[in-house]
């Protein structure tokens, strides 16, 4: 099990305070700077490892940044404290984005990111809670994170802990039946402490979602399953923060975050082949420039 980096955690705490204290423009600027640094880390990790899921990593980066730097109550130095807020990345193939975010939050040293997918690294291609603090459950096969989030939310209510539970699913992942089982359960149990965020980048591994097995009207479908639905620009920091506010209806919240797969790098954005393509040396340089 990796361990916390105290100085990184302290830096994160002060950044988080600045974000919370700042006016919307300052807040957005700080979060953008943070997200771009995370994207640069991800780019380096994937370039060095020669593998990874860059498109989905970049679409979810702003969501992760907002959750960890502006919304959730977590303690990187006590990652399993009982009344923590819980985060589950159901789209586990985007582990690179999660690792980079957790490291910048101080859950483990940023230098550990250099081992991404190297032999015997704790940083497997999909996250492992047994080895990586801040990971709540092991994901990778799709359609697993949301049911676990539902159980965690039920547990938090039984324990009266006040914890909130956030789970990010891919949009293609919403084709898995288990997610809809979980949504039925979430609304039946009135889990107002649960927020489901769909990273709606409209691309899945092989093609566009709507060409593969259409999800639209996703908002109406989620509403029909009892969710309090919010549709936002998944790259607008202040809108994302607003969307993460607690339920107003007593129902679980579903946030459809409209995102761009590969966000931030012109030649990666919204292109299906960049689901798990690895940039060449030249492309890596260009991407670094665009993210700087």
């Amino acid at each position: 099990m990796l361990t916390a980096d105290a100085s990184q955690a302290a830096a994160w705490r002060s950044l988080r305070q600045e974000v919370l204290d700042g006016d919307p423009a300052t807040r957005a600027a700080k979060l953008h700077e943070r997200a771009q640094a995370t994207r640069r880390s991800i780019l380096k990790m994937i370039s060095d490892a020669g593998q990874g899921h860059i498109g989905g990593d970049f679409s979810v980066t702003d969501i992760l940044t907002v959750l960890f730097d502006a919304v959730m109550d977590v303690d990187p130095e006590d990652p399993r404290k009982e009344d923590r807020d819980h985060f589950i990345l159901s789209k586990g193939h985007c582990a690179g984005a999660l690792y980079s975010t957790l490291a910048h939050t101080g859950f483990f040293p940023v230098s550990e990111l250099d081992t991404f997918m190297a032999p015997l690294s704790a940083l497997n291609g999909h996250p492992n809670r047994v080895k990586v603090p801040g990971v709540e459950t092991n994901t990778g096969p799709l359609g697993h994170g949301l049911p676990v989030a539902v159980g965690t939310a039920i547990g938090a209510k039984l324990l009266k802990s006040g914890s909130r539970v956030f789970v990010v699913t891919g949009d293609g992942e919403m084709q898995e039946g288990s997610n809809w089982e979980a949504l039925m359960s979430a609304s039946h149990q009135k889990l107002d402490n649960l927020t489901v965020i769909v990273d709606r980048n409209r691309l899945q591994q092989g093609a566009r979602t709507e060409e593969t097995n259409g999800l639209d009207p996703l908002d109406a479908r989620l509403a029909a399953f009892g969710m309090e639905v919010r549709v936002v620009d998944g790259h607008n920091y202040n809108d994302l923060i607003e969307a993460m506010s607690p339920s107003t209806t007593g129902s679980p919240v579903a946030v459809i975050a409209n995102t761009i797969k590969g966000k931030g790098v012109s030649f990666i954005e919204d292109r299906v082949e960049w689901h798990h393509k690895v940039p060449s040396k030249e492309q890596t340089l260009q991407a670094f420039q665009e993210l700087s």
Binding site: T137, P147, V148, G151, G155, S163, E181
Partner: peptide, 28 residues
């Protein structure tokens, strides 16, 4: 009554919910 969670006929969700309850600190 509060400690029996009947998820209905949905076994995949049932096991995931069990894992989540354990994650929250319960013994499911």
């Amino acid at each position: 009554p509060d400690r029996l969670i009947n998820v209905g006929i949905a076994e995949q969700n049932m096991v995931g919910v069990g894992a989540g309850l354990a994650n929250a600190g319960l013994i499911p």
